[in-house]
Structure formats: C-alpha cells, structure tokens
Design a binder for these strands. Structure first.
Lengths: 332, 332
DNA sequence: CTGAAAGCGCTTACAG
DNA sequence: CTGAAAGCGCTTACAG
C-alpha cells in the first residue's frame, strides 16, 4: 500500500498541494478560508495521512534528527544519560539516533559518517582517544557538535562535563583526614583527558600530603580480570587502606573482588566508588560514591546543541557541573 | 557552508549527475570508462562529498532507518538488548532510532508516529498494555514490525520472546524439590501477557504440588517501595521460604530489602531472580538467576525485521528462545 | 484566498 | 559509454 501524500489530499479535496501544505503547517501568514481548511483536515484524517518528514527534511535542509555517540549504550552510565537526552530532545521535537563506538576511533568515525549521511541536525558525542580527525571533519562541514562527559585536549568544542579534578581532590582530602596508611587509586590506563583529570586531582592532593599512594590502571577490555589481578597483587590488608574506584565498572569489579575474597568493608578496607548504580546498593556495606548530575548534563547538552543548530549562540561554551560526594559507611 | 552534492561533482568533473550517481553506486550494469570513474572518485574525495541519504531515501522509498521502542532504555535489560540490536542492525546497514515509552500507551503511539514520519523501514517494539490501536495502525500502513520480549494477546505479530511459562515452571519445580514451607512469587500487577505467562508457569506448578504460595504484585511506578512494604508484610522467617523475583528490577528491590534488614541468604530465606545484572554479583550470596539469551533475541529480531522489509518472508514467525537457569548458592 | 512552478539531492529507465 | 529528463514528497516566493 502506498502511503498517502499531500498530493492525494489535494486531489481529493480539490485544491492545490500548496494549499494543503499551508493548512497542514498552520502558517499564519497566508490565510486559507475556514471551509477549505476544514475540508483538507478532514480528508487528511480520512486517508490516514502521515507527513513524510524525509521529503520535508530534504526541502528544508533540516531533519530534526540528532545523533548520540557513546562508548557503549549498555553501560549504565551512558544508558541513563541517553534516556535523559532522549526526553530532552523529544521536548524540542528531535528524534534520537544512537550509536556505540566501544572506545574505537574507527567505529567512532564510522558513526559520525553514518549520522552525517542521515543528515542529522547535530551530534552529541563522547569522543574517544584518536577521534580528532573525525571531529575535525565534522567541524569543517560545520556540523553542530556538543561533547558530553568527555572533552578533547586539542579541539575546543562546546560541551558538558563534571569537575573531575576537583571531585577527586575532594575525595582524596576526605580520605586523608582519616589517616590511612595507604591510598589506592583504581583507574584506566588511558589518555582520555577527563579521566586523567580525575586521576590528577587525586594524585596531586595525595602527593602534597606525603601519604603513600598506589595506582592500579587497567585497560578497557578486561576490566574485571585486571582489577582482580592487581588488587590481589597490591592490596595489603596489614595496612589501613582506602581504595578509590574511579568509574562504575571499576567499582563493580573491585567490589566483586572484595566479596569473592571475603574482605570486609570498612573493617578491612575502606572505599569510595564513582557513579551511582543499583549494584552499589546490594553490597553488604553502604558504598560511598560520587554522583554525577546526569539529568543536568543531558539537559544542558541538548540545549547547547539546539542553540548551535538554531544559531542562537554562535560559539557554544563548555559547561562544568559539580559532582556530589555521597558519604555512606564504606569509609572508616 | 553548503555541503557538496553530486551536482557539484558533476560540474567539476565535467560529466552528468547520472554518470556520477552510477559511479558512486558502483552499479555493474552500466559501464563507465575507467578514466571517468577515476576522475569522479577523485573529485568526490577532494570536495569531501558525503552522500545525502535523505535524498536517496526519498527517491528509493527506503531510509535504512529502523526504530526501536522499549519501555525504558535506562533499564539494564533493554539497554543490553538495544546494544545487540544496534550491532546487528549496523551489520545490515541500518541505523537505529531509539525511544522509551515508560509503559505508557500514549507515549508508545507518539513514538510510532514519530518513527513513521521519519520513514523508518520498520520497527522493533516491546509493546505496552493498550498499545493495540497504535500497532493496528502500523499494520494497516503495512509497516514491518517485530515484537521483542513481549507479545500481544490479540494481534499475531512476528516476534521474539523467551519461554516464560516453562522457565517459571522449571524454577518452581526446582524449589519444590527442596521442600519449602512457603513459596513467594514476586511479580507485577499487570496485563502484559509475557509476564502473566511467567506468573502462570510458577502458579500452575505450585498448585499441583499443594505447597503454600503467596503472590506479591507491584505496580510499575514505585517498585522498590512496594516490594519492601509487601515483603515486610508477607515474609515469615519462621517458615522455610523461597522467593522468586520475576524481573531484574524486582530482584534488585528485593535483594536490597534483604540487605537492609540483615536477612541472610540462603540461611534465612532462599531466592531466585530474573535476568542477569552486575548487581547480583555484589550481593553477599551468589544469586541464582534466569538468564535470557539477549544476543539471540536481538539477532533474531533484526533478522525477522530485515526479512519483512525485503519481503524475503511474507509472514514472519514468532520465535521462542529458551532461558537458562543459572544455579548458584542462593537456594538451599 | 488560492495555485503554478521551482527546487531540495538523489536514482534510473530510456535514448543515443 | 554517457546524458537529458522525470519524479520521490515536500515548501515557499510569487503572481493573481
């Protein structure tokens, strides 16, 4: 069955397609008689007309589509962000294309390519290491872009992020007050700037104090195994130790290690994790964690993008939100 | 900056747009000379040409877009499914539109409307209660549709699901062998057929045995609170009890209740949960659970949809996959 | 108040 | 081997 077009409406209603278009778009400027309007609306209804946005997009050069590129939509953090972005985008009349790039610059480039072929009006992206080329290409083609969660070292793009350095500094400070013998930072062996900030904040503060600090850095592909292995090698229960897991995945891997090895929190070791996830609430001790303001990040990212798309703001800004330290009983 | 079109390539290369189109699409039928081909490809490269899929879609009446409607993309179960669907869809050249409808039939209808305006080639949906009208509309308009996870009582649609009835029967059977005084089924107060199946399988098997069974059914909006409240009212620790949580959200809510109230598993109570989630692994006891074959569900759903889109198969089938019971130590 | 016409960027049957 | 032309479903400046 061929789907009805405005041509069909025009034919049945005995008017021109132009008139149909005017009525359907409720343009104020050109007044169409009440009678014709009613007629057209009736016909549209009766033949079950659905506008073809693709034709409209082609004519108008805007698609009302926005693309979202994350590392992995099945990761709690990103699926929560995606959900908020979806709601926000919907409010502004956008539909969301979603793609996961697995920290892989080729996949990232492929997705930007795909989205750009689909004529998205703009993209919200969490850029990966070595994605500069793909991003620069988008910039040359004047695509509105907003970064989320992450940012790029060498390209100044509007985006949203949290105060990674400061929150880590704050966590470290909190731990220092409790006089631990040793602090362990668990993070990724990565070049992603926002994660380096997260690490630096902790490191710098610890250095100043002179407290012994160890770093456990894992690759992104075998997080669980690597965290377990390195905790086995590095965790010395004879010392009073606190661990800072700098992401939800790391936190979950670490907590699981503690469970599996019957290490009690905070009796044997203290800890703080990053991001809020349901999993933390099933751990036998109430896990202290860093909460990111997901809705705010999402809302602002869509707003920044929409501003660019409509050129309300020529140059977007980089907006930093404050993460919140939720203190529960895993530190003692 | 206006983006380059095949017209630009044609002008610069000194050929017609038809020729450009042929070369860019590598059509075998019409042979274009090596020289012209090379020239066109070079020009395309040099002006950074990106095909406008929207124009192509309009002409070809297919968009290579597919829509996915789930209850909530931030729910672990759906975000994992979405991820697999994304990968699978990508392989076949489709880009994914994602929407969450929050079990709300109006939002569901809105999303189908939106997706249909965007001219998706088909949709994969987890239909909600009272979504029959929206679905019927899509059917009348001959949209390829595949249901996932759920199915509709009154509309026979191709789709993928698991053996809800049988797996619950199997869990119940497993529990009956351990001679519990009481079995508690924790589920939703809902009309969703797949969830009723899940409940029936358990009920029917329990009835036959004569073992006392209680039902805890919650609404979908305050799961945690309701589960906690009802467990408080119904869980009698003086009896040897086993609880079956029939979804990941219910399981997490229930496990948290047990943690908060210091109820030991399996010493004080036994349990089985549904779906696999990272959270189960942080619970102090190894949680036995039902694992759904997510990748298979996703893969088959995309395959069924692609078949419909390309009319490889006129009528799709409903495919049922077997869920797997992962026995760990939470039942004794 | 309404319509004829051009054009958005493509594809493809047809002609040469 | 290559091109002119029609057309996908819309919008909108212009004319009447």
């Amino acid at each position: 069955m061929k789907r009805a077009s405005i041509k069909d409406i025009a034919r049945i209603a005995g008017v021109s397609v132009a008139t149909v278009s005017y009525v359907l778009n409720k343009k104020e400027g050109s007044r169409i008689s009440e009678a014709t309007q009613k007629k057209i609306l009736e016909v549209a209804q009766s033949i079950n007309y659905t506008p073809n946005k693709i034709a409209k997009s082609l004519k108008m050069s805007k698609s009302k589509l926005i693309g979202l590129i994350v590392a992995d939509i099945s990761n709690d953090f990103y699926s929560n962000i995606a959900r908020s972005i979806e709601d926000e985008a919907m409010k502004l009349g956008y539909t969301l294309l979603i793609g996961s790039c697995d920290e892989n610059p080729e996949k990232f480039a492929k997705l930007t390519e795909l989205f750009s072929e689909q004529q998205v009006d703009g993209m919200i992206v969490a850029p990966v290491v070595d994605s500069d080329d793909a991003i620069n290409k988008l910039i040359r083609e004047e695509y509105p872009i907003v970064t989320i969660d992450r940012y790029l070292k060498n390209i100044d793009l509007p985006g949203v992020m949290i105060n990674n350095f400061e929150i880590s500094e704050q966590i470290c400070n909190h731990l220092l007050l409790k006089n631990f013998d040793e602090l362990i930072y668990v993070g990724y062996d990565t070049e992603l700037p926002h994660l380096l900030d997260r690490q630096d904040g902790f490191d710098k503060r610890a250095e100043k104090s002179g407290t012994s600090i160890k770093r456990i850095l894992t690759g992104i592909h075998h997080i669980t195994e690597e965290v377990h292995q390195q905790l086995r090698d590095n965790l010395d229960l004879s010392k009073k130790t606190a661990i800072y897991f700098s992401s939800n995945k790391l936190g979950i891997a670490g907590l699981r290690y503690l469970i599996d090895n019957n290490i009690k929190v905070p009796e044997n070791v203290s800890l703080v994790a990053f991001d809020e996830t349901e999993a933390y609430y099933l751990f036998p001790t109430e896990v202290s964690f860093v909460r990111q303001p997901l809705e705010e990040l999402a809302r602002e990212s869509v707003k920044l993008l929409d501003n660019q798309i409509n050129s309300y703001a020529k140059e977007g800004r980089r907006v930093t939100f404050k993460a919140e330290f939720i203190e529960r009983s895993s530190v003692e």
